[in-house]
Design a protein around this nucleic acid. Structure first.
Lengths: 122, 122
DNA sequence: TCTTACACTTACACATTTGTGCGTACTTCC
DNA sequence: GGAAGTACGCACAAATGTGTAAGTGTAAGA
């Protein structure tokens, strides 16, 4: 009875509504590796292998996939140079920087309040 | 060469480091249903069925599982009354409110910049 | 009497995510 | 001449996430 109608929710662009495109972006932005790559790139440009070393426990496969998705969402820019061995640079777009800063606020808060999350966080 | 040592990262409590407990919390906090449940509870207490109606397309199974995890992380408080039919109330803890507000800032920003994320967000 | 509602739980199966190992074309270093 | 580094792509398998359908016990409402 006190429920909000679907139409009402869509008008507000609410993520709570199913099929809202925000959910797609949110999923990518907050995916395990998406978050970590964004954070890693906050300090500036990195090459593929540097990124892999920086982000703990990421596999080649997931890193490549994550970078593609971030690029598709305009969060990361990829520059490749036609030399051998291959040379590719990754950096944040302005949109990506904005996103990364917000993510960083969240992770900083989590780290700060870590003890409060109880035994489940062990 | 410019890599930061693992020890250095752990001291800073960096999420980039593997096995950092922050990753666990982050995963839960930003999980598909975790986010949506936190947002749904921002307006106050809700019962199980209300919550299910509020959060689009969530199944009984996932909702129950999500609520358990959020409770384990001290983000949600569960109050059950020994009546029949069962009556259970869910509400945010202070920690949960803090989390929910931060998540909301992120989703608001996403909704606001949605057009900028390109065709991939379609 | 029979259905509906509540707040779940369990079993099963499918979908998505993630890891592993292998290969590449070439160059530099030992 | 052999090994290592670069930035990946691909095939296969394991792990995890998620949905579906069914069932629980009781009581209020038709």
């Amino acid at each position: 009875m006190s429920d909000i109608s679907l139409g009402e929710r869509m008008r507000r662009g609410d993520v709570l509504a199913p099929h809202c495109p925000s959910r797609v972006v949110l999923r990518q932005l907050t995916s395990t590796w998406g978050v970590l790559v964004l954070l890693a790139l906050r300090d500036g440009m990195l090459r593929f292998t540097q990124l892999r070393r920086r982000v703990g426990d990421v596999s080649d496969r997931m890193l490549a996939q994550t970078l593609k998705q971030l690029e598709a969402h305009n969060l990361v820019e990829r520059r490749s140079f036609p030399v051998v061995p291959p040379h590719v640079e990754y950096r944040l777009t302005p949109l990506g920087e904005d996103a990364a800063n917000r993510i960083a606020q969240l992770t900083d808060w989590i780290e700060h309040r870590l003890p409060d999350f109880g035994a489940a966080a062990a």
